[in-house]
Design a protein around this nucleic acid. Structure first.
Length: 552
RNA sequence: GCGGAUGUAGCUCAGUGGUAGAGCACCACGUUGCCAACGUGGCUGUCGAGGGUUCGACUCCCUUCAUCCGCUCCA
């Protein structure tokens, strides 16, 4: 990890932005906790998103660049959904298999796809991994379709024999499958391509979704999954929202909430976590208008990060190539940030904007879809010709009153990571600069230049000294700021310069100081974090001044 | 998942087979009074966790957890 990233991680811990989850017990890989300041920061990120996308959206006026006016509403759906949701969405089939890894060849196999057969050869032996003992009776393994042939190849290779001696192999029983033998026999198995026996790990269930059990006496039949994305909660409620809220196409349904994925390698601080928060919009529109909306949302979402202070130098909008697109998508773009833990020229994804067509709604109507021989989406069938995963059977189409036609809307999905955005804002804010101390010598200053909307603490109030009535006056100013609903800090501890630096380090945009003049003329100073410029303003107008600067 | 490195105070790090130290930070008092001041005093650790060897382990061994790096993975 780069030096600058290490400094950011250290600051996050020192000042209470982000802590490792369950740290006193040694931590949990892939989980993070937000401390007091991180909680404020992330809430501000979330609130800014919700305000800018949903609650502050004026449905009577189309924003510039938008194809037309549109409506936006929010939902908040449960973390656990009916298991069939994940079967139809395609998440269930992706990984839910027992897997084994080979330590030697670093390859991974599905347990039920490995064929094995016991064999020995005139007392010839194969070394066993770890114990280094000589085994004369081993089980060779293959994943080849033509397993009978390859088992011979594997056996000859394991014993170091030439092809012409194949008849010397003494087979013991017929070929079987790795999932049908006892775990205690694994030390005798020579994995495909391996030179030693016993290099396979214990079989493990490999599932991207976190499993849980519903019901106090639950068995595996009651298995459910924590949602791996918030989007499905929106799709399955599409009909409910349409029927209950008088929305008309085009409109968006939004949701902010936690999702869970068993990441294989959680890494890079909070960037890839197993529990994370998403901010998603599913924007429904007429199929013939979808391409215009895709472009609108892609550009709108990119601009959102710029408006909150991300530098254009570190933020890119990357359109996926056609061959990268999911089969149902006609266009996908990522908004990516040059995180300090990445090499130069590399970017990490903050948000994906996908054109998903009618894939999701149709999947929940008809069952899990796949591309048929004509390239058209159709329900995936099982061996009996029935849908492999049955949909709800409910009609999720939309009736357009103006056009007098019924169709399944197309969907544009801007899906953002709240934790990733928060991390990007943290990285972007981190600055070290030089400022003079009281003797005029240049000193290193650590300052978090958060956008004022995102700053966890909006203002700090100091009495210049701890006497002559200044603390009391400062307490009044502090109270007025709190009454105005601003998260503020009061500090009378230590020298004034040190107090300014403490606030710089947590990114407080404004510091208010009560001094000797306050007691005579009723003014205080307000100091700007970035410019260090101080202005005198009336003490009784502080809340008003700070509020107006925050909204500037 | 595989391999390597690391883990001691809030932070950065010393340290030795005989039950722990520095600087910074933090707190109190005094002095100063607008950009990390000075003086005096004070607080802080189950030395990542568990087990083993030993009369005795922070130190040696094993296991485990976490972090970082490389490979792999990234649905």
């Amino acid at each position: 990890m780069s030096r600058s990233m290490e400094k950011i991680v250290a600051l996050c811990k020192r000042r209470g932005f982000v802590f490792q989850n369950s740290e006193i017990y040694g931590g949990q890989n892939g989980f993070w906790d937000y401390g007091p300041l991180g909680t404020e920061l992330k809430r501000n990120v979330r609130d800014s998103w919700y305000h800018d996308m949903v609650s502050g959206h004026n449905e009577l006026l189309p924003p510039s660049e938008a194809p037309s006016k549109y409506q936006m509403v929010g939902v908040e759906t449960a973390l656990i959904m009916h298991p069939q949701v994940w079967k139809c969405s395609g998440h269930y089939d992706l990984f839910h298999d027992m897997m084994v890894d080979c330590r030697e060849t670093r390859s991974r196999f599905r347990l039920d796809q490995v064929r094995i057969r016991w064999v020995s050869c005139d007392g010839k032996s194969v070394k066993q991994d770890k114990t280094e003992s000589d085994l004369t009776r081993i089980a060779v393994a293959t994943t080849e379709e033509d397993f009978a042939v390859d088992l011979v190849v594997q056996a000859l290779r394991a014993f170091g024999m030439k092809k012409k001696y194949a008849d010397k192999l003494q087979w013991d029983g017929n070929a079987t499958r790795l999932d049908l033998i006892d775990l205690s026999e694994f030390p005798n198995v020579v994995a495909p391509g391996a030179t030693k026996a016993g290099t396979l790990t214990d079989p493990r269930e490999f599932n991207l979704m976190m499993k849980t059990i519903i019901g106090a006496l639950g068995t595996d039949d009651d298995a459910a999954y924590l949602r791996p994305e918030t989007a499905q909660g929106i799709f399955v409620n599409f009909k409910n929202v349409v029927d209950s809220s008088r929305v008309k196409l085009p409109f968006g349904i939004c949701q902010v909430g936690k999702s869970f994925r068993n990441e294989i390698t959680p890494r890079n601080f909070t960037f890839r976590s197993r529990e994370f928060e998403q901010m998603e919009i599913e924007f429904f529109c007429r199929p013939d208008a979808s391409s215009g909306w895709y472009t609108y949302w892609r550009d709108r979402r990119y601009q959102w990060y710029l408006d909150l202070g991300i530098s254009k130098d570190r933020l890119i909008l990357r359109d996926h190539h056609a061959d990268e697109l999911a089969h149902y998508s006609v266009g996908t773009a990522d908004i990516e940030y040059a995180f300090p833990f990445l090499d130069d020229g590399e970017y990490g994804e903050l948000e994906g904007i996908a054109h998903r067509g009618d894939f999701d709604l149709r999947s929940h109507m008809e069952g899990k879809l796949t591309k048929d021989e004509n390239g058209e989406l159709a329900p995936e069938l099982n061996e009996h010709g029935q849908p492999r995963h049955r949909g709800s059977g409910k009609d999720l189409s939309y009736f357009d009153d103006h056009a007098k036609e019924r169709f399944v809307p197309h969907v544009i999905e801007p899906s953002a990571g709240a934790d990733r955005a928060t991390l990007a804002f943290l990285c972007e804010a981190y600055h070290e600069d030089q400022q003079p101390d009281e003797k005029g010598r240049m000193q290193e200053r650590l300052v978090m230049k958060f956008h004022p909307r995102l700053a966890p603490v909006k203002a700090a109030v100091f009495p210049l000294i701890k006497k002559e009535g200044m603390p009391e006056k400062a307490a009044d100013v502090f109270g007025a700021l709190k009454t105005a609903g601003l998260n503020c800090q009061y500090d009378q501890q230590g020298a004034i310069g040190r107090r300014y630096r403490r606030q710089d380090e947590i990114g407080t945009p404004y510091c208010i100081t009560v001094d000797g003049d306050t007691l005579t003329d009723g003014t205080v100073t307000i100091r700007d974090r970035d410019t260090l410029v101080q202005e005198r303003i009336p003490a009784d107008r502080v809340a008003e001044e700070v509020t107006s600067r925050l909204n500037a």
